[in-house]
Design a binder for these strands. Structure first.
Lengths: 340, 340
DNA sequence: TTGTGTAATGTTAGCGATAACGGCAGAGGG
DNA sequence: CCCTCTGCCGTTATCGCTAACATTACACAA
């Protein structure tokens, strides 16, 4: 047990304490190269006694290798992204790689800044949400010299690899299911976020699906900020007040959908008979609601896994390049869409 | 627009492209030292044209400075921690410092590993949840040579600075409020997590508060894993079936409390008349529930801010040492505790 | 004995940046 | 005219570690 952390410890301190060269200490600490059991023991003991922690900055500079993977996502409070992260962590678990998270708050400029900052640490790979980036950001990704995986969304052109679902088709399929169940007067409730391209694409796909059946949205309502559950209530009330004859409400995410569901139940509205409801994401956080909200699983964890797998699978940013993995979201009718 | 990212770019490339020395380029890129407007322009232009991204690894090694702050938390899905993080980010916003997150899954061993990994990058500070660590981890924190802030909890001895609330007193105050409202047959529902010391302390404080009124817990129920909302329902049902005469349920967090609340409402139980409910955390995610659950704000964002403030305020790990900041959680009676 | 192979360790030369200091103009004062 | 000062920019020496190669010691075959 040492007691004076005056001058930071270096390999040299360990080497002197154990009577071998710095190189040998380095080899022991990295489990690389041949070292006799005896020296290994001595070195480990000395390192532990001193409380030595290797300096990865120097190590990375010397070896030109960094065990970090940059992960850039829009938000941590969205509930979706922590799940993606969890998939990434799980997959990276014993590859020696480690995720480092950056958050953009849905701002392209901030995304660019975060990306720049990350790349300046020369990570072994980058996982970034979405396909839409500033020109600079896209250029950085192209020139990064490491594998890049754009996640969540496959509706568009990626820089390198892409893992996600088609939000357009997700919206489309939900529309088909709703129409098939016999609903005709359909409203949409969503967030007012121009930068949430995935929500936009879902809506577009949804409208496309309605159009195919000769329908269009009867009314829409948008919000921004605030507690999603509470907003779901308010918006639902507002929408139904304005257009009382709606027979279905499609929410852009499960949280506001849940709020809407709770409001409808409070009001004694017959769900799904008189009014059907659906959300998006399949968050199991909401499992305990009085009814299971119809939704569509966004394959969040799986997306994280696959993305991490791609990064981990490319030795040194190998030039294998651009896989596109499209996952298939599964519709869950729950209790809020009439069954045939 | 360049097109061949063969050999990674270095300062030298920019220096050659702009006809000045590496040192001058470095100065321009860091906004440090005197550089004429003319050269600055040339350099920036060259850097942009090449798509140069500085190598912070080399920079950090040379300058012995790293603009990262390690943040170690048990989980990202707990809802509480993203909020703490958001406070940290906000406070660090324009200090040049940047948070780097590590997750421990409530495992002391993993915490130790994550801490070791973080320290090996020589961050400018460490923010870590909780006061309980392995002996090794504690030693590392003590010898890190940078400011350390332990957050969330003040019931115990910290290594350096501490920012949080007293969970013991939080539990105690909730007990007092419940007793004051006239409830007597009180049950507790919580998570089965020996490593969640804060939940444990809250429970202890709660029992202490009951004891002061001559009461003790009438029954308890624990769970682990699964969707919190659903678990809240199940546990509540189980507990009330086993001990039907309970008149109050104290939940260790708002999510299971919300599940319980929904179940009680489903059952037509008179809340808060026949049965009172309370949770912990004050997550505004739940604002849209049919009733506002009684809870206690854990000052999550504020904790993040204060912790970041301490880190940012210490120039180079200055030796100012050990502040302890105890925040005061506010009880919110909501609609699930009888009012006087 | 000499050579050859292998295991275990040491030596040297950077990795890409920055700190610290040095040099060299031109301005201004005496 | 000399001297100091300031603005601007270059040179040199690390930072702590690792890749690559050199070296040593010993075993064993020829």
């Amino acid at each position: 047990m040492p007691s004076e952390p005056r001058r930071p410890l270096t390999l040299r301190d360990v080497s002197e304490a154990s009577g071998v060269s710095e190189m040998t200490v380095s080899r022991v600490l990295r489990n690389r190269g041949d070292v006799s059991e005896a020296t290994r023991g001595k070195v480990l003991e000395a390192a532990k006694a001193l409380g030595y922690v290797p300096n990865k900055i120097a190590g990375a500079l010397a070896s030109q290798r960094v065990n970090l993977v940059g992960v850039i996502i829009p938000s941590l409070s969205n509930l979706v992204f922590p799940e993606v992260l969890s998939g990434i962590s799980a997959e990276l678990e014993d590859t020696g790689l480690q995720p480092v998270v950056g958050v953009t708050d849905y701002s392209p400029e901030k995304e660019e800044a975060v990306l720049y900052e990350m790349l300046s640490w020369r990570p072994s790979g980058v996982i970034i949400a979405g396909l839409e980036h500033t020109a600079s950001a896209r250029a950085m990704l192209e020139n990064a010299g490491v594998p890049v995986v754009e996640i969540m969304d496959v509706d568009g052109q990626g820089v390198d690899s892409v893992v996600g679902i088609s939000h357009r088709r997700a919206g489309l399929h939900m529309a088909e299911a709703i129409v098939a169940a016999g609903y005709r007067r359909i409203g949409f409730l969503g967030t007012k976020m121009p930068e949430d391209h995935r929500a936009r694409k879902r809506l577009e796909g949804f409208q496309e699906g309605l159009a195919a059946a000769g329908l269009e949205l009867a009314d829409t309502e948008f919000y921004s900020g605030g507690s999603a559950l509470a907003k779901g209530r308010e918006m639902t009330q507002a929408l139904l007040q304005r257009t009382p004859d709606l027979d279905f409400l499609y929410y852009s995410n499960d949280m506001i959908g849940a709020g809407g569901l709770l409001w409808c139940l409070d009001q004694g509205i017959d769900v799904p008979g008189r009014l059907g409801l659906a959300g998006f994401n399949g968050v199991d956080l909401l499992d305990g609601l009085p009814r299971r909200l119809a939704t569509m699983d966004a394959c969040r964890r799986e997306i994280g896994r696959k993305a991490a797998e791609i990064i981990a699978g490319r030795p040194h940013g190998g030039l294998i390049g651009g896989e596109v993995i499209e996952l298939e979201p599964v519709i869950q009718l729950g209790d809020t869409i009439r069954r045939a």
